[in-house]
Design a protein around this nucleic acid. Structure first.
Length: 567
RNA sequence: GCAUCAGUAGCUCAGUGGAUAGAGCAAUGGCCUCCGGAGCCAUGUGCGGAGGUUCGAUUCCUCUCUGGUGCACCA
């Protein structure tokens, strides 16, 4: 419908191309102001006339059009009122299409997303949840737009921290305890190492020495390392299963250990490597950044080295058009440095293909999360707690309302986990999050369960319709009330919302949209009975329920959340 | 110190170079013998401050204040 408006304006206005017109056209803030609006401020300068007069002139030039009810001039705005039945029909039909909201702009091109990437031998806590949830949603969003997305879990499974763990394990650990408590025990060893190292700094040198051994392929070191890694992965996968998420590749930092030499060689031939305090660095002073450390003074690699190796590997292997890194904003400098180094090696594509997607810090009741101080909540505990609370509510509702819900545990999992995901995706990524159980477990208002509830309600309505024919013709002229039209307009934003979410790397746009549709539907529902005797009206309203239901489900799936038929 | 991000209603947050800046939470008061009350409706003296660009700035620029984060051998 917007295209037809653009056609009209293009034909009757000089000096603007279709793209410019399209960008100018807006949806008025209030329905009384029309269905589409075209502001004429910008034309005032070139046409040297008051914008109000320009609007009036354009109106006259357009004249009568078959699908337009009225064109109103309001100040500098040209407000278009589309004939309702035509507008309704076009919106319902658009929203009924199978891939509504999606497109094929991606054309099968590859996008790599590096996310989740927990540090092996450390617990998976609330902070890790953010990267996992945001990354997963971006995967869904870009897939919806026709991209071939590679989900890469770049495990933190290499580095000096394993030297520390080996030192700690050999000094204070034992096999039994690690077998019994898994990552929990490894964490204890890690914390103990840091406490002891404060008194005895030579422990740090020992740790670095063990890491050098790892890099040199020392059998004993690698055996312990592999064992710790296996233990950790089992625990992480349990959390991923709960979240209903998976990855295409688990390629941790260790995967690149034989590829860092090549990075050093490239940098050396490009004459970018300089020595400083015994270490090898790339000087970035010209770009107002601290130097990028490539090799430590003991010759071993560091995370930047491995990130560089990973970039070249991914470019060669997947030929990505974009490689996204979903990590905390505190790593911003690191990625700026690494991306700049890639660029300095003569890779212009680094400028727009390598993108850091930062998110805000998670704190716990105002204090920073810290394993060492015990100020920590584990992802798994949060998810299980939410599921358990949802289950209580479901059971209570079943007694109160006499509902018969088939799969209580499955539904509780869907809603509980969904609540956590939604809560994490609802605000802009960059906002810091102060974790609060109260907020997380309140399911009223702008929450996942609210949206899911609306979905279940749609399903329930459709199940209960009497004398309903799936294939009956719809009389669109029967839909005239404001609540119905608002609902349709809301739903029809979907394709643009998905594009915006992708452009800004902001799943929150989708979450906000899902809530807006749900709110709009609930208002419609409160004003319009659907299962009524008037068959034509019943079928018309049911058509709105159907597309609402479908759109909510598709939007929620983009967040990694499924919707239950009953709850 | 340098860099960077943020500052909108009591709280948590949306939002846009333009038509009266919006939601949710919390609070109070309402909601049809009828499709699901995890719902709907009603109540709101707010864009940190100062300049600048513009016909128009909460939005863009500069400065400033406040808070977060980062600044080499951790990732």
């Amino acid at each position: 419908m917007k295209q037809q408006i653009i056609d009209l304006i293009e034909k009757n206005v000089e000096g603007l191309n279709r793209e410019e017109i399209s960008a100018l056209i807006e949806i008025p803030p209030k329905p009384e102001l029309g269905d589409f609006a075209f502001p004429c401020f910008r034309l005032a300068k070139t046409m040297r006339k008051a914008p109000q007069m320009i609007a009036a002139d354009i109106k006259d030039a357009i004249g009568e059009v078959d699908f337009i009810e009225e064109i109103a001039v309001q100040g500098a705005y040209l407000n278009f009122f589309i004939k309702k039945n035509i507008f309704v029909k076009s919106m319902v039909e658009a929203a009924s299409a199978d891939n509504f909201g999606g497109s094929n702009v991606g054309d099968g091109k590859c996008i790599c997303i590096d996310y989740s990437s927990p540090n092996v031998a450390k617990n998976f806590h609330v902070g890790h949840l953010r990267t996992t949830i945001i990354g997963n949603s971006l995967y869904k969003i870009y897939s919806k737009l026709g991209y071939d997305v590679k989900r890469i879990n770049h495990l933190g499974d290499w580095g000096t921290q394993f030297g520390k763990l080996i030192v700690a394990y050999k000094a204070w650990g034992n096999e039994e305890a690690v077998k019994k408590d898994g990552v929990g025990e490894l964490m204890k060893l890690y914390v103990k190492f840091h406490d002891e190292a404060k008194e005895n700094p030579t422990l740090n040198d020992e740790a670095r020495a063990w890491f050098v051994k790892m890099e040199q392929g020392d059998e004993e070191a690698l055996k312990i390392w592999q064992w710790f890694k296996d233990i950790s992965l089992i625990e992480y996968k349990r959390t991923y299963d709960l979240l209903g998420m998976d990855f295409d590749y688990y390629l941790g930092e260790s995967f690149y250990r034989d590829k860092t030499d090549d990075v050093v060689n490239k940098l050396t031939s490009a004459n970018l490597l300089t020595e400083s305090e015994g270490a090898k660095i790339v000087d970035l002073e010209a770009y107002d950044m601290a130097p990028c450390l490539i090799l430590k003074n003991d010759g071993s690699s560091i995370y930047a080295t491995r990130d560089l190796a990973a970039i070249f590997y991914r470019k060669d292997t997947y030929n990505f058009v974009k490689c996204l890194y979903v990590t905390g904003q505190e790593q911003k400098l690191h990625f700026s440095q690494v991306f700049k180094v890639v660029e300095l090696l003569g890779n212009e594509w680094a400028k727009d293909q390598l993108v850091h997607i930062p998110y805000g810090l998670v704190s716990l009741e105002g204090a920073k999360l810290s394993t060492r101080s015990g100020n920590i909540i584990y992802a798994e505990d949060i998810l299980l707690e939410a599921v358990s609370k949802v289950k209580d509510i479901i059971i209570e509702n079943m007694e109160k309302k006499g509902q018969d819900i088939q799969d209580v545990d499955g539904t509780a999992k869907m809603v509980g986990v969904g609540a956590v995901l939604f809560n994490d995706l609802y605000n802009q990524r960059i906002k810091d999050v102060s974790f609060s159980w109260d907020k997380l477990l309140n399911f009223n208002g702008e929450t996942g369960p609210y949206v899911q509830y609306t979905y279940a309600r749609c399903s329930s309505i459709l199940r209960g319709l009497d004398n309903y024919d799936e294939n009956a013709d719809i009389d669109y002229s029967l839909i005239t009330d404001a609540a119905s039209i608002d609902l349709l307009k809301e739903i029809n934003r979907f394709p643009q919302v998905v594009v915006d979410a992708a452009d800004k790397y902001e799943p929150s746009q989708i979450a906000r949209f899902a809530v807006a549709v749900a709110q709009s539907f609930n208002k419609f529902y409160n004003e319009n009975r659907i299962n009524i005797d008037d068959s034509a009206l019943k079928h018309a309203r049911a058509a709105l329920v159907k597309i609402t239901r479908k759109t909510i489900k598709d939007a929620m799936l983009l967040l990694g959340i499924d919707c239950p038929e009953q709850m």
